[in-house]
Design a protein around this nucleic acid. Structure first.
Lengths: 207, 207
DNA sequence: CCGAGACTTGAGTGATCGCTCAAGTCTTGT
DNA sequence: ACAAGACTTGAGCGATCACTCAAGTCTCGG
């Protein structure tokens, strides 16, 4: 019952991506539904035809992030980068570039929403967690690919979680200080940790 | 008439700490001035006599955090802990205890506010940054006290920033997952990093 | 005892919020 | 051609928001 013609849900998508952009720029609560209407150039009735409440809009935005992590984030960041460890730091570099391009204003939208919504309804919190888990899973896959260069007993899932932790904490401080200094310091420390982990097994091998 | 000793600003303090508690529990934007009036048991006119706008209230709360970090956070966390490295992880343990006591709801109020307010007015952002800087300075002092157990060329300020980064990122994930698993994983990784740093200089010594 | 300023009371302001809905227009299957 | 549903229009709703203010009460110096 859906249209296979070129514009499948042009209006719906326009609303969705306007909301995505505004939530990332101003936050969820500071974005009014009227803001989204204006940005998407639709009237109230159209918006509420597709999204019965503002929270449904938030859920759709979080689902878009979940589904867009590979094509919108990882593929661009990993283009031309093959080494799995290099890919992890290329991903962190993508966040740095986004911060730099926005004068340390744009950070990780998932992290912002996670801390902004203190008591999110269960489906919202679930989608936030799913987004974090997806990010961690992709980093963990890189670590798995480099498993023979890492210490044998290393908990790679734990290290992937730690990498997300570092990114989120570093982005938070960069936005607060409006400076990349603390971001770079954090990534440098994480990189030093990685180097020490990689050095552990380097001693026996001749690479 | 009830208090014989002149209470300098009993009402003002009651408003201030009601705001502090509510901002930490529900966030800044989700807390209405009416909520604070109710919690502090004052009427609108009294509140606005002391704090001309909601933002002035926020500034006062952030100043209270800045001034309260030693007596309210560090002294309790460090009671009975003398080793400077142990003090750092005791501090992280205090955040873990707060998360555990609140079912992973209460995190770092500064971090929450930092990400909730996307475009904070300059004085607000400044006070957020001051709070971060104070935290880092105290951790850095611990690292300085343990300098002879750390690698010679180590950038201790960078490591202190990285420690805050880890705490903030770990708290964010704990609140999102409503679980301490990712928090513990992050702290464990940070601890492993510290152990590797400490082990570097152990090789030469005979402890 | 008085006056002045500090503080409190509490009804009330306009603005903005998320959301509704009756009345359209457009698209689609038959 | 035509009915039915999908989508759009845009005025308007009640609730809540941060904030105001005139009229108090209280405290204290002189």
């Amino acid at each position: 019952m859906s249209t296979q013609t070129p514009p499948p849900d042009a209006t719906r998508d326009r609303i969705l991506y306007s909301a995505l952009r505004l939530f990332a720029e101003k936050g969820f609560q500071s974005t009014s539904v009227a803001d989204i209407q204006r940005e998407a150039d639709v009237h109230a009735g159209s918006l509420y035809h597709f999204f019965p409440t503002k929270q449904h809009l938030l859920l759709a935005v979080l689902a878009a992030y979940r589904d867009g992590i590979v094509p919108m984030l990882l593929e661009p960041a990993w283009r031309g980068v093959e080494d799995p460890i290099a890919r992890i730091f290329a991903l962190l570099g993508a966040y740095r570039a986004a911060l730099e391009a926005s004068a340390c204003t744009y950070g990780c939208p998932i992290g912002s929403l996670a801390l902004e919504l203190h008591e999110p309804d269960p489906p919202v919190r679930e989608l936030l967690a799913v987004n974090f888990d997806g990010w961690v899973r992709h980093v963990e896959a890189c670590l798995d690919a480099a498993r023979d260069r890492l210490p044998p007993g290393l908990d790679r899932h734990q290290l992937a979680v730690f990498t997300l932790t570092t990114m989120e904490g570093a982005v938070m401080q960069a936005r607060t200080h409006r400076s990349l200094h603390t971001f770079d310091a954090s990534i440098a420390s994480l990189h030093d940790y990685y180097q020490r982990l990689l050095a552990t097994t380097d001693k026996g091998t001749t690479k």
